[in-house]
Write a protein that binds this DNA or RNA. Structure first.
Lengths: 217, 217
DNA sequence: TTTTATGTTAACCTTGTGGTTAAACCAAGC
DNA sequence: GCTTGGTTTAACCACAAGGTTAACATAAAA
């Protein structure tokens, strides 16, 4: 009785593309249907309304984006290892879904409530544990003092900002796509070093960066 | 003959608010008219179309946002002073127009061309000069080596990211508005120190930060 | 006072859009 | 063969949204 030709998934995949490109308000149900090669009514058959379809897309995006990152930050790794792992997780995630950062930021601005709800459900970030790691480092004289909140914001800013502001950066620096990818690669290997330098002179001594090109684990 | 009751400016001001809240696609000409207390046709009388009105808003926003920042970076100040001035300029600009960062990012994503055009017109950022300052510092052994592009991206990321991602940060950290403002204040005074630490052990020795609270010039 | 150019409005037009409906399609079970 | 139930479509609907028009208001110029 059930044909299950994967239409539902097909719609979701195409909806993701359209919603990314145009945002919720700019997206058209017709375009999603066209791109999926089906009738518009069929989209409504599976996802009752535009809002529900968007929710499905948004939740799917967040579920792909957040758990790996939160997982790393909540893990038992040493702080230096954590930074490495976080950067690696972020860049690899974004390289397969380059639209995600901009999309999430954009739509979160349009509808903060949805995000707040999701943030509550999916295991909250454990700032307490990170804080203990930072304080331990300070006690041992390895780190300068820095508030956990600022630490996390800085790490995230380093990773996410270039993707979010890509258009602006490219326009202003007159970077073509190839050059920008280069810059991103450079960041991927440089961020851990920058974070270490920010934390203090004792951090990550084996990875101290003094040259432009940078090593990678 | 000309009455000039300031209607044109009135429309622009209200359009800014609406476009910020809803983005281009989400904004309604009717809502802009309503908020301005005038007829919808009058909006079209002054600004022929939604697109033109939006352009006016966008250009006005960029003209308020960019010149002060580019001005600082292109100036003759010493690098440490430049960082201070940039942070100060950014935070003071944003504190009077908190919507701007998110708005610019969002709409630049929707229409990169407009931004590219504007970036070309309004005096481009002079990376060459900044680069010379960085290289001079390296030659004197005061700075570690860092690519200009990365330096600028990092500075901008430090300043802009919290405003752009505010909703996400607040949702995840469960920060209320008051706490978030606190965090922003803390950043405003901490960023120069972080940038200095990133640049190298010799930078900004008189401002090296070792405590959570930080001084302000 | 009449003219004239600018401001302003109510009413209207056209198109696009999210959403619905009723009918057709089609594979499996009887 | 015929029913059955999920799947798919063409046609349709209501209404919202951008934009236009023609008339009206008003203050300065003639």
């Amino acid at each position: 009785m059930q044909k299950d030709t994967g239409t539902e998934q097909l719609i979701l995949r195409n909806a993701e593309q359209i919603f990314y490109l145009r945002g919720f308000d700019g997206a058209r149900m017709q375009e999603i249907a066209d791109r999926s090669g089906i009738n518009k009514a069929l989209v409504h058959y599976y996802y009752r309304s535009k809002a529900r379809l968007f929710d499905a897309v948004f939740v799917a995006a967040l579920q792909r984006l957040l758990p790996p990152l939160v997982g790393v930050l909540n893990s038992e790794m040493a702080l230096e290892k954590k930074i490495d792992a976080f950067v690696e997780a972020y860049f690899s995630m974004v390289s397969s879904h380059p639209f995600m950062p901009g999309f999430v930021i954009q739509e979160m601005h349009r509808n903060p409530a949805v995000f707040r709800k999701f943030a509550g459900e999916s295991g909250l970030l454990d700032l307490g544990k990170l804080n203990r790691q930072l304080e331990a480092g300070v006690a041992e004289g390895r780190y300068r003092n820095i508030a956990v909140e600022q630490f996390v914001i800085n790490l995230l800013a380093f990773c996410a900002f270039p993707f979010i502001a890509r258009q602006a950066i490219q326009a202003f620096g007159a970077f073509d796509d190839k050059r920008f990818e280069q810059i991103l690669d450079e960041r991927r290997s440089s961020i851990p070093g920058w974070m270490a330098e920010m934390l203090g002179p004792g951090a990550l001594p084996e990875k101290r960066q003094t040259s432009r090109g940078a090593e990678q684990p």
